[in-house]
Design a binder for these strands. Structure first.
Lengths: 354, 354
DNA sequence: TTGAAAGCGCTACCAG
DNA sequence: CTGGTAGCGCTTTCAA
């Protein structure tokens, strides 16, 4: 910048103004500066700029696993929305490791980002108080934390559990199992929904029917297979399984099929996530859609709202209603009429905001 | 920092030293500083630091699509390697849009990152000369650009095409089609490999057997279905298809199955990417593994090497050899013995570096 | 319309 | 071991 100033015989201030489209600058001068800037392919140092303005136009996103399509899709939708307002997304992955997540967040805080969007895998709230201390605004997605009043966008996980379980009941399952997720809010609430649906139908909760994920595990597909093997050793054998997510369901289905069972006739399976490959599996998988795109978009909107507001806003919560997508893995002969190539969408659409 | 200095009656310089583990500081002073830092949960402003040191410890990664597991996996592996050396990854997605990619790269350059890793979707080299002008080191992955002598890590795409096509020939296919990829180096070279394998086997290249992706398209799965529908209208019908990647193959298989064909008996299908769900599909999909993890790791190593070298290194090229993974979609009755649950791995392992 | 001076938060350099 | 001074590349403020 100094160089350009010297070359052109103007001051750095003038250049700075031109670069920011400040009106206070003569047309001819502006042209000359622009020409030289283009010539040199000069780009102002944004880090230096944000040091003085106090705004980086950088938003951090922390997810537990970028390889999971659910989070990849969220990253994509957040990024799209932010970009329109000139914000830029930094994505980082905690690999489902609370300690790594802390490091990542520390790093992002130290870089003085304008805001953070976090799908946390931490069990406690302490870290978030520290974030608040730094006055960095943040939005939680997918997973909420009890005792923390923060911005949150996610799906109604209890409804997920109820929708899935009730569907299994509807198609005639009597012994419904649940391969549950981790000890985060979705894992907990989906299981609660499962239990509640059973109770409402007058069915008992059988302890052996609930398979708990061991911690610190990676391959959720293999995970699903192990869980299914446990379930199949039970007698009487369950005739329906609600899986915490689709990768788990995929592994579970594979195991059942490889052991000679028919899906859904011998055992029906439903997952959650409605991933794009669900309809191409050995048996197309019924699932609960959690509206990942919308989660991202809402999280981004809230972030932008906070950033553009002069006064601190009070925390906002957006809970999306899940949606049942029926495919072959739960379509029994005499069951519901609903059916189509891409799966029939049913019930409970819409969203509400508290 | 100033505040701490005032509170403790020491200078900011001392604090700075403590924070960077500089040896030149008294034990007692160090303790006092550390204590106060912890107390305030103080984090030095890394942006300010990098402004003066000229190093941000930030590496940018630009991929065409984060939702694609291939790139997600690369992102993950790069990040893991870099983290160990204290570098941090900024991921951004170009959505297969050359203009967007340019914007993203401009943005990253303006932030003065230490290096860039790019899977480009641009057809021309101009942008990269601009990057070189800025003296920002970069490594190309997956896609190379003719006429550009840059660091590159990728798979031998011609070998991919040959391996896949030869395999189809081996199992007895006579009319082998190719659903090709975009006009980037992998798309081009895989097709060349396909043609070469045909030629080597004395088979003719039939124009109608090569389906070209229309540009500016999104859903590669639907893409595959459309391509397959074209192929099935041919007479005589092809009896084998090599697809540019697995999502494409997934769509193609679905279409064929939905139209009453048997895979592999009526038509064999092979893809590329060896994605984690390949073995769970309606017909488990044979594929060519491109070693995504290794691509990421190598790219990260090269980056680190450049960053730690005082003198500019000359461009490095790493070409990984692809690997055939056989599953049901190409396993015909009387064919190769190779077979196992997770697919049999065959041939050409290893890697070489030029 | 232009630019000189001050300073964002930090580190490099060198004198004490 | 400690700290004053200068300066990274930019923007802000305000006087000319």
């Amino acid at each position: 910048m100094k160089d350009i100033a010297r070359d052109l015989g103007v001051s750095v201030v003038t250049i700075s103004k031109v670069l920011r489209n400040h009106p206070d600058v003569g047309d001819e001068t502006r042209e000359r500066v622009l020409a030289r800037v283009k010539e040199l392919d000069y780009r102002p140092n944004l880090a230096a700029r944000s040091l003085v303005t106090g705004r980086s136009y950088l938003i951090g996103l922390v997810v537990p696993d970028l390889l999971h399509p659910f989070f990849a899709e969220i990253a994509k939708s957040i990024s799209e929305v932010l970009r329109k307002s000139g914000y830029y997304l930094i994505v980082s992955s905690s690999e489902e490791d609370p300690d790594l997540e802390e490091q990542e967040i520390d790093q992002l805080l130290a870089r003085r980002l304008d805001a953070l969007v976090i799908a946390t895998c931490r069990p406690t709230v302490d870290l978030f108080f520290r974030i608040e201390n730094q006055k960095t605004p943040y939005v939680l997605i997918d997973r909420s934390l009890p005792g923390l009043s923060a911005n949150f966008v996610g799906v109604d996980d209890e409804a997920v559990g109820m929708l899935a379980t009730r569907h299994l009941i509807d198609i005639g399952c009597k012994r419904i199992a649940h391969i549950r997720g981790p000890e985060t809010s979705p894992g907990i609430h989906r299981m609660e929904g499962y239990k509640r649906a059973l109770a409402q139908a007058g069915l008992k909760v059988v302890d052996d029917h609930i398979i708990t994920e061991r911690k610190g595990d990676v391959g959720t597909k293999q995970r699903g297979a192990e869980a299914m093997s446990q379930l199949l050793s039970l007698k009487p054998r369950p005739d329906g399984v609600f899986c915490f997510n689709d990768p788990l369901a995929m592994g579970a289905m594979n195991y059942a099929l490889d052991h000679g069972l028919r899906i859904p006739d011998d055992i029906a399976v439903i997952g959650c996530g409605n991933l794009h490959y669900d309809d191409s599996l050995r048996v197309p998988l019924s699932s609960i859609d959690q509206h990942s795109r919308q989660i991202g978009e809402q999280a981004a909107s809230i972030t932008l709202r906070i950033l553009s507001s002069k006064t601190p806003l009070r925390p906002e919560t957006v809970v999306l209603q899940p949606e049942l997508v029926v495919r072959r893995s739960t379509q029994r002969r005499a069951a519901k009429p609903a059916s189509s190539k891409s799966g029939a969408r049913a019930t409970l659409s819409g969203e509400y905001s508290i």
